[in-house]
Design a protein around this nucleic acid. Structure first.
Length: 330
DNA sequence: TTTCATGATTTCCC
DNA sequence: GGGAAATCATGAAA
């Protein structure tokens, strides 16, 4: 029965017209593929092969049915001949016919099974998601990378976070899981290769967060420049020039020693703190090799991330409220 | 054509 | 069931 349903769904059995294309479309949808230019070619190829399978199936089925009726007739004739020498009840004839039909239906079952197998092979060959692999678009990759590098100490998004990322990237939750699985492994295997990318996203995240916070603090407390020392931040290294540039520092914010003095709202402090460290990395400081922001300090000696039991969310990264990402705080 | 990057799958482990 | 690791298969750049 299940075989019948499958063959019907695949358009092998049932009405001839359009069955294959419907199945192809359904299979393509199941594989998550979108009908593109090459997809059209492949689908027509798929339909052609499916039609071939369908034709073979029907001709074989017809042959079996013909053979079945021929054999039944043959047996009936034999029984009729035998009835001249011994009495044969109609029940006995019925029983014999039933046996023959059972035998042939089991053969038909085998035919259906092998047809199903052929269809499955065809489907996997033409419509498998693996074969249909497409790189995610740039924006999706950026969103995923931003999340990954801003949660580097615990790059295990919760289900909700995965769903949100999936929505943002227009991909499925399982694709998000795959991406993080691949990313974690590949990052761990080749940290050096990803260092530059990590730094890039560190700065990007910090700048984004800083600008958001700046807007927020401007909206909340419009005029609080130079209001005491608690909110000031001194950038005292060469790398801080970059930080100053990123933050749009005016020359008037440089002190006598050439240091950049940022007067910032307390809410902005963690972001600037992050940026401060990030720019040290990009400036090639000695710290790069010792206390580098994205050297996975949270990787334990067995090379696995510590504390991966608490997946983080998209909206509320780990760490104290207001921090850009927990990885940056030592 | 070759090589590298990357998304997906499979297998194993906890 | 989720994650790590290995592997496969494909896309894209060289």
């Amino acid at each position: 029965m299940r075989l019948d349903n499958m063959l019907l769904a695949e358009g092998v059995s049932g009405p001839e017209k359009g069955g294959g294309s419907a199945a192809a479309a359904a299979a393509a949808a199941a594989a998550g593929g979108s009908p593109g230019a090459d997809g059209g070619i492949e689908h027509s190829d798929y339909r052609a092969k499916l039609a071939q399978i369908r034709q073979i199936y029907h001709s074989e089925l017809e042959k079996y049915e013909q053979a079945c009726s021929e054999f039944t007739n043959h047996v009936m004739n034999l029984l009729r001949e035998q009835s001249r020498t011994r009495p044969i009840s109609p029940k006995e004839i019925e029983r014999m016919v039933a046996i023959i039909h059972r035998k042939f239906s089991s053969i038909q079952m085998q035919l259906k099974q092998s047809t199903c197998e052929a269809v499955m092979i065809l489907r996997s060959r033409f419509l498998d998601a693996r074969r249909k692999r497409r790189n995610f678009n740039k924006q999706a990759t950026e969103v995923l990378n931003e999340y990954f590098y801003s949660h580097l100490s615990n790059p295990y998004p919760s289900e909700e976070a995965k769903e949100e990322l999936a929505k943002k990237c227009a991909i499925t939750v399982s694709q998000v899981s795959n991406w993080f699985g691949n990313k974690r492994i590949r990052y761990k295997k080749n940290i050096g290769k990803f260092q530059e990318e990590a730094n890039l996203y560190a700065v990007k995240t910090a700048v984004d967060a800083a600008s958001v916070s700046a807007q927020a603090s401007q909206a909340n407390s419009p005029a609080t420049p130079n209001s005491g020392s608690s909110g000031s931040y001194s950038l005292s290294h060469a790398g801080d020039a970059a930080a100053a540039a990123y933050l749009g520092l005016h020359p008037s914010n440089l002190n006598g020693a050439g240091e950049a003095v940022l007067n910032i709202a307390p809410s902005l402090q963690p972001q600037v703190d992050t940026l401060h460290r990030a720019t040290h990395l990009t400036a090639g400081y000695e710290e790069l090799t010792t206390t580098s922001l994205y050297v996975p300090r949270r990787l334990d000696p067995s090379n696995s991330w510590q504390d991966n039991t608490h997946p983080s969310s998209v909206t509320s990264p780990p760490g104290p409220p207001g921090s850009v990402h927990s990885d940056t705080s030592n």
